[in-house]
């Protein structure tokens, strides 16, 4: 077997893929070699289960929801075609705009903070501390609690007027407000809750950090690079595919956040819709008010928004993401 060349010769510019996020090159031109044909067949073989799942389990619900978004459907009747009616209704629906605003705030604030903590802790824990596996598991614990009712109950207690957060604030002389009752502040406990789940992307970052070849660092040390330089010029580029992944996934997850708001606000999105996540509004529209046509339209608008955000992230990543394995 040929020896693997070490990566000193690989540079950022030389390896960036031509299209952001797209698979590394495609078969271009009419040259269908036998090898290429075998490759394609094998690929479809490997993709077989996914394609089957796509057609059978994913496509139908997705297409059905698209169709329903153009109808007036309330579960048990027949769908009534109304064209763009639902979408027009959205434009004039104050709760729709409110939920967009709430979700946007939630995403814009909690996602960067979450990713920041994840990366920070991953780097801190990757230094070979002896208790590292223990710390890593411990930091991961909050993410294990997912849609836990128990945690949501405790979270409400934490942010109650007589709760711990206000007690701590009292130590530094700040009079704590009524977090859960003040529409201006009620989103904050939820954002904090989201940030505490940084353990999940952190674990992924850790796995990625582990894959960065040590010789790169050694070579850089020989060249006299200090820790910050190593971070910016070696670590970040090497794990950039994973940074992109974590960013996209965390964004998509935050846009679709549901359970925490549902439980902490008791399903209301209160007080006064200040914690009305978009998906919570969607849920209420469909499941409480049986307005499935409108709910489907809401879902598709969310999909378009998420797609736009994701696409811009991918395009923006063009300059920053470096796929080490792709060779020309």
């Amino acid at each position: 077997m040929t020896e693997v060349r070490t990566d000193r010769t690989l540079s950022r510019e030389g390896q960036a893929p031509s299209r952001p996020g797209a698979p590394a090159g495609e078969v271009r031109g009419p040259k269908w070699t036998k090898m290429a044909k075998r490759d394609a067949l094998a690929a479809y073989g490997f993709l077989g289960p996914w394609i089957l799942g796509l057609l059978a389990i994913t496509a139908f619900p997705i297409l059905a929801s698209l169709y329903l978004s153009f109808t007036n459907y309330s579960a048990g009747g027949t769908p009534d075609w109304i064209g763009l009616g639902n979408y027009q209704r959205m434009l004039e629906d104050p709760r729709f705009w409110k939920s967009l605003q709430v979700t946007a705030t939630y995403v814009l604030v909690s996602v960067p903070v979450l990713l920041g903590f994840a990366l920070l802790l991953a780097v801190a824990l990757n230094t070979g501390l002896r208790l590292m596996p223990l710390y890593r598991s411990a930091y991961y614990l909050p993410s294990l609690l997912g849609g836990s009712v128990a945690l949501a109950v405790l979270w409400r207690r934490l942010f109650a007027q007589e709760g711990l957060v206000n007690d701590v604030l009292g130590w530094i002389g700040v009079v704590g407000p009524a977090w859960l009752s003040d529409p201006a502040l009620a989103l904050i406990p939820l954002m904090v809750l989201n940030v505490t789940t940084f353990g999940a992307p952190m674990v992924i970052f850790l796995a990625a950090l582990r894959q960065v070849p040590q010789e790169l660092y050694d070579a850089a040390a020989v060249d006299g690079a200090g820790a910050p330089r190593k971070f910016w010029s070696i670590t970040l580029p090497q794990i950039s595919p994973v940074v992109l992944f974590n960013a996209v996934i965390t964004l998509i997850g935050a846009f679709q956040a549901f359970t925490s708001a549902y439980i902490v606000s008791g399903g209301t999105g209160g007080p006064v819709d200040s914690t009305l996540f978009y998906t919570l509004y969607l849920y209420q529209t469909g499941f409480n008010y049986f307005d499935f046509g409108y709910a489907s339209a809401l879902a598709w608008v969310l999909l378009v928004i998420i797609a736009a955000v994701t696409a811009s992230t991918f395009i923006g990543s063009r300059r920053f993401v470096f796929y080490g394995g792709d060779s020309r």
Binding site: A160, A178, L180, S181, D182, A186, P271
Partner: peptide
Amino acid sequence: TPQMLGERGL
């Protein structure tokens, strides 16, 4: 008060 309302258990 309204402040106590938000924290009331269900």
